[in-house]
Design a protein around this nucleic acid. Structure first.
Lengths: 177, 177, 177, 177
DNA sequence: CATGAATGAGTCTTCATTCAT
DNA sequence: TATGAATGAAGACTCATTCAT
């Protein structure tokens, strides 16, 4: 059964997404991906140089967007809102990829970006907290993690992205600040 | 030099905690644990049946506490606060174990408890949101995840548990609700 | 664009020669040969049954010449010179093939011929040494290998075969004997 | 069947030597080495970090000697003899290792040394040829290869190193120069 | 009570060869 | 006549677990 290249590539990506999402990069098995894509392991390597390359094919675009986020965002005070809006946008557009990327171990090349996003949001929150009395900047970091993990939860649990929930959740998280 | 059984067991647990915390269950290496505990791999297996058993010995107590949490907590409205207080208490008392447990994959036996805690908090929040206008119950779950992940971030980043930060963070997360 | 069979065959042989010479039989890659010949791997197999067959197509003629060498050479004393002259002739005429063949592992079918050439020269030298005092026949074999490997070195290092060097080298190797 | 570590290490080295000598580094198979040493592949790796490490354990000493040869040899004219004597000495003391090393591909880390030895001998010969009329320096390189390959042939063919043959062969190769 | 040697199934990856189109 | 997708067996290497001593 001879198949078109592009169709095969899609099948691989689909299987790989599932595998990476369920098991993370390290525990994802090329054999399992191959089985699930109904082909041999060897054939995987005709499409992707190696596991990392395959991973990159999946989360590469999102990875770039996130890497560029810092320089594409306004600096200084009041940047929390635009930043969050952008993050939600990216989440919506890259649901599976986002979850895969954010479950990657920090040590890998791709894990760095995730860390950086947390830091970016933390910084933005620090500035915001400076304005308001009552909250110490020491909670900026936990709040940043809270926000992103909360958003990820929404992502994880809805078949289609629940924009309402995201909006409401952000309102909840931010309004006090 | 004959060593007391209990002393050895402690050495193992100490090394295993470090290893599990740094690398997670899957990537933790029995050999590294043995090396760090200054003994041979074989000896590890005299004290613990296998890797999972050793894991259980570490997070077992906390695991029990969390499993019993549901029946030890008051039911009905207004249980958010006591629940959170109890969780913070447990975190403080089991810092390393908590982080190890909450970074475990959901699929394992121990992952279930973590899920259950998220659910318990979610339920409590649902009730609370019902009272207040303005927030839908659909965000109860993300808020629950936000809270716990925020707390974990505090745990992860301070050498000694920063109670102030935890308190402040909870205040931030809850006061609107 | 339909291509003539013979032209294609030549392209393959040319690429294969380069590949075999650079990497030897085992490390030569069919894919690289195909790429370098600007065709697909599958097509290679329409022209040659397999890698070994392709190898045979390259060194086949030289292989035959060398196989027949024994019966085409005069027997008895004084055959060292004509033998060496013939070898140099063949080297000049089959530079790439010669180097490919002589770098092949002894175990293969083609390795046998190489061994046989060494033996033929050894035998001729034995006779020669018997005449002269001073040299034992036990060094006939090392001298045979020395001669051929020395010639190969010349082959390997000059862009165009350096006849002077070959002549001088042979003179050096033989004059005493 | 529990065995002493050192005995096992010896068994591995013995099998590895045979395998490396027969097939060279690249084609040597860890599985075959394990089989021939009557153990599992995994166990090989308890003794040697990887294939290269195992290779190094075999030819490491000889490799060092050869690497240091240049600086341990006299400079200037008349160094051909001492150099050859030293080479023969090393050959005698490291028969199997020598043959393994000299059949290694030039590209590897260890292949460099072999090349260097050929060059060292070539240089020494160039000087010698400058003195004598009649031979051009262009044959220094082929003569160097001839000498070493001739010596290797002796090594390869005798069960115990045939010192007489080596001596005689060198006399044959050198006396004219 | 402890050692550490050994196993075996698993991992990613490569490549000559085949075959549907 | 040619393509290139797919296969399958092999390669080096890792690691939790067992067991003889």
């Amino acid at each position: 059964m001879q198949v078109l290249k592009e169709e095969v590539r899609q099948r691989i990506i689909k299987s790989a997404k599932k595998e990476f999402r369920n098991n993370g990069f390290d525990k994802a098995s090329m054999r399992d991906i191959a089985d699930s894509a109904k082909m041999t392991v060897g054939n995987l390597y005709r499409y992707y140089k190696n596991k990392e390359d395959m991973f990159g094919a999946i989360i590469g675009d999102l990875y770039q967007e996130l890497k560029d986020l810092r320089k594409n965002m306004p600096e200084g005070k009041g940047r929390v809102s635009p930043l969050l809006n952008r993050l939600v946008e990216l989440q919506k557009a890259n649901k599976a990829e986002w979850l895969i990327l954010f479950n990657t171990t920090k040590s890998s090349k791709y894990g760095k970006v995730v860390e950086d996003i947390y830091n970016l949001l933390t910084e933005a929150l620090v500035e915001q907290f400076e304005e308001k009395k009552g909250f110490d900047e020491s909670i900026a970091k936990p709040v940043a993690y809270a926000i992103i993990n909360g958003l990820n939860t929404i992502l994880q649990n809805e078949r289609k992205y629940n924009s309402d929930a995201a909006e409401q959740f952000l309102e909840y998280m931010i309004k006090t600040a």
